[in-house]
């Protein structure tokens, strides 16, 4: 049987949830009309002929944002196990968590000074 009780429902629910878009798309495929034409499938650009594609190199700043996000998301993930056992761990663990957050704040200040959070 399952080692982690309750998680068989997670798998089952994942299957049921995957059925929702699958059934919706299949039903629509059976019911909808399909008239193909070259004009129909042009890219929308406010009625103008599109100039160039959109698969281009885009701004590096999005990448910087994503990196900063990953750092802080991992930080919150690391704080969760501590939060669950907060009452048992006591003061020492609290100070340790503060030190952990302080290190990340130093990192944030560094990223800020370097201009990673500025757009222009």
């Amino acid at each position: 049987m399952f080692v982690l009780t309750g998680y068989e429902y997670l798998l089952g629910f994942l299957l049921v949830c995957s059925l929702v878009p699958a059934l919706a798309l299949t039903a629509s495929k059976l019911l909808r009309p399909s008239r193909r034409g070259p004009e129909r499938r042009t890219t929308y650009e406010s009625g103008m002929e599109p100039i160039g594609g959109a698969w281009i190199q885009f701004n590096i700043r999005y990448y910087m944002f994503a990196l900063v996000f990953v750092i802080f998301d991992v930080e919150t993930v690391f704080l969760y196990p501590w939060a669950v056992a907060f009452n048992q761990l006591g003061l020492l663990a609290f100070i340790e968590a503060l030190i952990f957050v302080a290190i990340l704040v130093v990192g944030l200040v560094y990223a800020w000074r370097k201009g990673a959070l500025e757009w222009s």
Partner: peptide
Amino acid sequence: KLIFKEDTVPAKADPLLFM
């Protein structure tokens, strides 16, 4: 209405990722 609507995929799009 949305079920009965035609599904247009742009010619330049990537059909699999688009779905």
